[in-house]
């Protein structure tokens, strides 16, 4: 098992904020819109650096999305950000008509995604956003796994022309992807080559997958670990190649079973190479208030759960 060292700890939302600032420096067409959560979604540095390119919309997310669409029509690269719950579900129709169908160059940035938002509880802990966004034609969906990858992903979607959704989280989590790791939209990242099982993970669950890989190695199980940061377009080739080698797969994500990364992988395998598969995801439940770590444990999103799923799926081979 390849060794991954913790390079530090930072929230992925700060990766977005720093990536946005860098994208703004590189391209004067980058603009940012916020709905009264400037510092929470880490747009403060961009606002300070480029005040004329920052738009405070107020608590009006629907208005924000379509204003972003109008700015995009004017040649801008428009980043619209809120908590993922309000940046997606609350404004689904605005994104559908003004962004996806109209194919405008708008980047929907969903912060505080998933259950690790913590104490605010289920109203704010969206676990459906990947599914909501990936169902829309023209929309790409990215869920980076640590601070460094979120910086890279933010810069990458600024350079990509077209609608994009990026989701990231609130708590501080380990940084383990080096700054010089290549990032390409739609390209899976091979974290560890193995032969017995494929573990496909996205977002905060990638670090859990690495820890699971270390435990599995002690049990004599060789796990191939793939980081899918781009859920749409999915890197079909990387997944099919790996699964044809290992013969079984476990997907890991901080999202509902329904509509998540697991769904995309299952669909791919069903059409090409059906193999035993297990999901680490949330099983049709809303979240609740609590510390992020405690919620991860309660909802079965820890390395221990991944190890159990691997043992189960290998038996089904």
């Amino acid at each position: 098992m390849k060794k991954y060292t913790i390079l530090g700890e930072k929230d992925t939302r700060s990766g977005f904020g720093d990536g946005l600032l860098e994208a703004g420096k590189r391209n004067p067409k980058v603009v940012a819109l916020c709905a009264d959560l400037t510092d929470s979604v880490k747009m403060g540095a961009f606002k300070q650096a480029f005040p004329e390119r920052f738009f405070q919309i107020g608590i009006a997310e629907a208005n924000m999305i379509d204003i972003a669409a109008g700015l995009a029509l004017s040649g801008k690269v428009a980043f619209a950000s809120s908590f993922a719950a309000f940046a997606t579900g609350r404004v689904y129709d605005q994104i559908r008509q003004g962004v996806a169908y109209s194919n405008t160059n708008v980047k929907i940035a969903g912060s505080h995604a998933g259950i690790t938002l913590g104490e605010d509880g289920a109203t704010h802990q969206i676990l459906e956003d990947i599914g909501l966004m990936k169902m829309m034609p023209n929309m790409i969906v990215i869920n980076p796994c640590d601070y460094n990858q979120t910086v890279q992903a933010t810069i990458a979607i600024a350079e990509y022309k077209g609608p994009a959704y990026i989701r990231y989280g609130r708590p501080k989590v380990p940084i383990f992807i080096s700054e010089d790791t290549p990032f390409e939209i739609g390209k899976a990242l091979m974290l560890n080559e193995g032969k017995d099982v494929t573990i496909i993970a996205t977002g905060h669950l990638v670090w859990e997958a690495i820890k699971a890989g270390e435990i599995l190695e002690e049990q004599g199980i060789s796990a191939e670990i793939i980081n899918i940061h781009t859920i749409k377009p999915l890197d079909n080739e990387a997944i099919l190649n790996s699964v044809s080698k290992t013969g079984c797969v476990v997907t890991c994500e901080e999202h509902q079973f329904n509509g998540g990364l697991g769904d995309s992988v299952a669909q791919l395998l069903a059409r090409n190479n059906p193999k035993p598969m297990e999901y680490i995801a949330i099983d049709d439940k809303f979240g609740e208030s609590g510390k992020p770590e405690d919620l991860m444990v309660k909802y079965g999103l820890k390395s221990k759960n991944i190890v159990e799923a691997v043992n189960k799926v290998i038996k089904r081979k």
């Binding site: 208005n63 999305i65 379509d66 669409a69």
Partner: peptide, 22 residues
């Protein structure tokens, strides 16, 4: 831009107005 689902065109227009100013 697409329209049909109501209530959205004014927001888009505001975006375009801000774009013109920029």
């Amino acid at each position: 831009v697409a329209s049909g689902s109501l209530g959205q065109g004014l927001s888009v227009s505001i975006g375009a107005s801000l774009g013109k100013k920029l």
